[in-house]
């Protein structure tokens, strides 16, 4: 796939990266209470951790055009759109062409806001799941 193809495979427009300074203030998000799937010590988002959006049909409209959409970075909206089906952290990074550390920070933010749920890795500690590794690998190949 060409590196700069704009619609990625799931039909989600790759977010145009805003320029520095533009919308700096509006990029802030409202502080949220500590709920929404947090473990005691925060979310440990491994590359193979699965996440998915928590939203109903009415939320979808809000994501695209509502209050929330106006307040947050386009990257946050793009992640929530992409996570309408379950995704691994590595897939999100690959599909949106965003550095892994950025994806981890934004996902933590979204999880704190109750926008996404963190599902874990689908395997017991120390026992990697073959199908999962295939999916992560295919995500990485799309980098």
């Amino acid at each position: 796939m060409p590196r700069h193809a704009s619609p990625v495979s799931d039909g989600v427009a790759a977010a145009a990266l805003p320029t520095r300074g533009a919308g700096r203030r509006s990029a802030r998000v409202r502080p949220y209470a500590l709920t929404g799937g947090r473990t005691q010590f925060g979310h440990v988002l491994l590359v193979e951790t699965f996440v998915a959006a928590i939203d109903g049909p009415e939320d979808r409209l809000e994501i695209l055009s509502g209050d929330w959409a106006e307040r947050v970075m386009p990257e946050m909206r793009a992640i929530v759109e992409l996570c309408r089906r379950m995704r691994s952290v590595a897939e999100i990074s690959a599909l949106l062409r965003m550095p892994l550390g950025v994806v981890r920070v934004l996902l933590s933010d979204l999880a704190d806001q109750g926008r996404i749920r963190v599902y874990g890795t689908g395997h017991a500690p120390g026992a990697p799941d073959h199908a999962l590794l295939e999916r992560v690998l295919s995500g990485l190949r799309r980098l």
Binding site: G42, V44, L45, P99, L100, G101, V105, S108
Partner: peptide, 9 residues
């Protein structure tokens, strides 16, 4: 606090 586990580049 928001704790993110990642080796930052």
């Amino acid at each position: 606090g928001r704790l993110v586990i990642h080796g930052v580049a």
